[in-house]
Write a protein that binds this DNA or RNA. Sequence first.
DNA 1: TTGTACGTCGTACACCGTACTGCGTACACT
DNA 2: AGTGTACGCAGTACGGTGTACGACGTACAA
Lengths: 257, 257
Amino acid sequence: MTPPRTRSTGAGEPSRTLALLWGDPSAQPRKGPGRSVTVAQVVDAALSLADEEGLGAVTMRAVAQRVGVSAMSVYTYVPGKAELLDLMVDALYAQMPRPAWGRSRWRSRLTSVAESNLELLTTHPWLTEVAALSRPPLGPGVMAKYEHELSALDGSGLSDVDTDAALTYLLGFVQSHARSAHDARRATTDTAMSDEQWWAANQPVLERALDPTAYPRATRIGAAAGEAHGSAWSEAAAWTFGLARTLDGLAALIERD
Amino acid sequence: MTPPRTRSTGAGEPSRTLALLWGDPSAQPRKGPGRSVTVAQVVDAALSLADEEGLGAVTMRAVAQRVGVSAMSVYTYVPGKAELLDLMVDALYAQMPRPAWGRSRWRSRLTSVAESNLELLTTHPWLTEVAALSRPPLGPGVMAKYEHELSALDGSGLSDVDTDAALTYLLGFVQSHARSAHDARRATTDTAMSDEQWWAANQPVLERALDPTAYPRATRIGAAAGEAHGSAWSEAAAWTFGLARTLDGLAALIERD
DNA sequence: TTGTACGTCGTACACCGTACTGCGTACACT
DNA sequence: AGTGTACGCAGTACGGTGTACGACGTACAA
């Protein structure tokens, strides 16, 4: 591990990542032995690994084994792990549905955009650990997704700059929500401890933490929220609340007189 | 590295983390040699390390060296790295300002809450990689922060459940924004490549990516956004836009008739 | 005084990303 | 047609991570 770079498209020449993303034929040398697999197979292997066992299972060795080459051979397909992650993200974006908008209004269109993104982030929760909202890898998947989602705001009357800002804002909410959901799921999953078990096990110390005289609102409201939807944080409730607020916030911009 | 747990309060007995967070005296044994440092010093060392050199520099060995003990001795203060991160978060929350609200209205109060959080996340960008919105470590810092921020909505007329949801929603926006800002800063920082340099270096392939006939809106709007604020993603513009939308969205709930 | 609970530390392990090297293949040029 | 060489592949190795384990010494409880 040379520098502590954790992610994202890096330095490899003037960026081989873009060439990979766009399948640039200039990156197709004509010497040496034939390649035993393809870049797409490498990316697919990494994707299935991430989906099945989480992002932590995506190691270069594991990817290599899954496609049937040695660990170091992966580096002839992909400059490094960060770039592989970029390719994974772009590949997923490319597969997203892009329905025609027909006569629907902006609010239902944006609801659809939000739900598509939630669906993607729910199916591939590790995306929330990887996908950058600013500075995504500029591949065909990203471009197609961006283009389609922008088109949802056709006819909204917003300026170009505001259209971009509005979309980014909406996607930010979805990402934020999905990340919370992912975190919450992991918390119960990988401690193998249900909410109630945790609560019971920690009750002695928790009594001090939840002192109603020291934290009157926190204890009251925390308890109310817990009772209202079963646990301290409800995925469904947070989604409907947040999406409504987000659309209302955009409505204040779009529908102002 | 045993299991691939990356974060958050774990299994150590019925959770020694809570005892640590609250300074539980039952965790004070009276045998053996005196401790050479304190838990607070360990946490402080980890905090300064993270602030100075990023979260990647926070390794158990580095923390140990900074407080002047051996790597393994850190484990007598803290059950593991995940718990150390929890303690760091709680310590930071504990230090946040908690001004009295006086006669101010909900909108200016929430603006203040948002700005305080942004300030914290800007000063300690690594927090965006660590802090969970759902399921935070229930320490005194978290509780005090939660209590204070809830009080900003006193008199708003919202139900307890909605108050909690509104606050979570606001904080979600701030986190999401701060994370994007952090990502964007890293992208230019650790590739040592300015926006223009990157753009120039990749222009050949980028011409295909930004084909206006294939992606008319994306290219037009992307260019417009880029011109409007110098780069593809402007931190300041995204903040003012997003905060306004978020508050407008909440206004639709709070001020409805 | 002594037993023992506990803090400290060195060593060791499994695993990570990836640099380097050696080898054999198959195209490009003469 | 022969050959040089660019390239794909694999093995080994390095420096890093979190942390399990065991040896050793300290200081309180009996």
